[in-house]
Computed example of a mutant assay.
Amino acid sequence: MRAVRRTIGWIVGIAIVGVLGMMLWASLRGRPQDLPWAPLDLGQPIGMFTGRKLTALTEDFPQCRALLDRAGVRYTVLPPRKGEGQCGYADGVRLADTGARRIAFTPSGLGVACPVAAALSMWEWDVVQPAAQRHFGARVASVDHFGSYSCRRIYGRDAGNWSEHSTADAIDIAGFRLTDGTRITVARDWKGDGAKAAFLREVRDGACTLFATTLSPDYNAAHADHLHLDQANRGATGWRACR
């Protein structure tokens, strides 16, 4: 019995040291989101658990809206929508093209599920704009996209799993337009060693820290002209895809 208590004591002690170590590490890095229990804040630097916290917002529309409000993201709530099968959403928002979000989306009037809007905002602030400044010395003025909500199964098949587009939990990014007039497209600029290709890979890699799924031309031919970003809620496993 004494040996059992001693073993339990060692386990508890190691756990406490581990927690304290995580707290110290997160503090030194200046990234509270490295801690799994730290509340999500869209204004904080991206941490180890930011992506999982964003995905968890698929179950909490009021919290997601509160986070957008706190971060100054301008949006309007969309009425619930119901379509065939599992198609539809009850957490849709339409992003405004002004305010704390300075990137416009083309076509305008983009509507997405709230967790996608939250991740897109952080992607802009922490990934896209810094990458554009590094590679081109300019800001991104707008993002070209192929849309979000689409009532269909994966790859448009007649059977099989429903796409995350069917609940507006996905968006397909086609390219970027900079303030100096430069245009960058996934279809034309993904391959190569130039600044445009490096920029696209950097924003793809950054998206992997924020979205549950990030798919690029490196994945397959179906994604040759866009980046697929989604917030698929995969339950307890929480596995993430980055290709």
Results as ranks from 00 to 15, higher is better:
R201M: 12
E202D: 13
T182E: 15
D205C: 07
A207N: 06
D189A: 10
F199R: 08
A197W: 06
R183K: 10
A207M: 10
R183G: 02
R177W: 00
G181D: 05
R183N: 06
A212I: 00
T214R: 06
A195I: 09
T214H: 03
S216A: 13
A212T: 01
L215H: 01
R204T: 01
A187M: 12
C208L: 15
V186C: 12
S216R: 01
T209A: 15
D189Q: 05
A207S: 10
F211H: 04
A207Y: 02
G181A: 12
A187C: 03
L210F: 07
R188M: 10
G192E: 04
A195E: 15
E202Y: 03
I184G: 05
T185F: 12
R204G: 07
R183S: 05
G192M: 09
K191Q: 14
D193Q: 14
G206R: 08
A195N: 07
G194R: 11
A197Q: 12
R177G: 00
W190D: 08
A195V: 08
L210D: 11
R204I: 03
E202I: 11
I184W: 14
D189T: 05
A197N: 03
V203I: 15
V203D: 09
D205H: 04
F199L: 11
G192S: 10
T214K: 06
R177H: 04
A212Y: 01
T214Y: 01
L215R: 03
R201T: 06
F199C: 09
A198W: 07
V186L: 13
L200G: 13
F211A: 05
R204C: 13
A195H: 07
W190V: 04
R188Q: 15
F211Q: 06
A195W: 11
R188S: 13
S216T: 02
K196L: 10
V186M: 12
G194N: 12
T209W: 13
E202M: 09
D205E: 15
G181V: 04
W190H: 04
A197T: 05
V203G: 07
R183P: 00
R183E: 14
C208F: 10
A195Q: 11
L178F: 01
V186S: 09
K196T: 02
D189N: 06
W190S: 04
L200A: 12
T179S: 12
A212K: 02
R188G: 06
D189R: 05
L200I: 08
A197D: 10
D205S: 03
A207V: 01
E202K: 09
G192N: 05
A187Q: 11
K191Y: 08
I184S: 14
F199M: 10
A187K: 14
L178G: 00
T185C: 07
R204W: 08
R188I: 04
V203L: 15
T185S: 15
F211P: 00
L215T: 02
T185Y: 05
L215E: 02
D180V: 03
C208R: 09
W190K: 03
G194P: 01
I184F: 14
G181T: 02
T182W: 13
I184A: 07
K191I: 11
G192D: 11
A198G: 06
I184R: 10
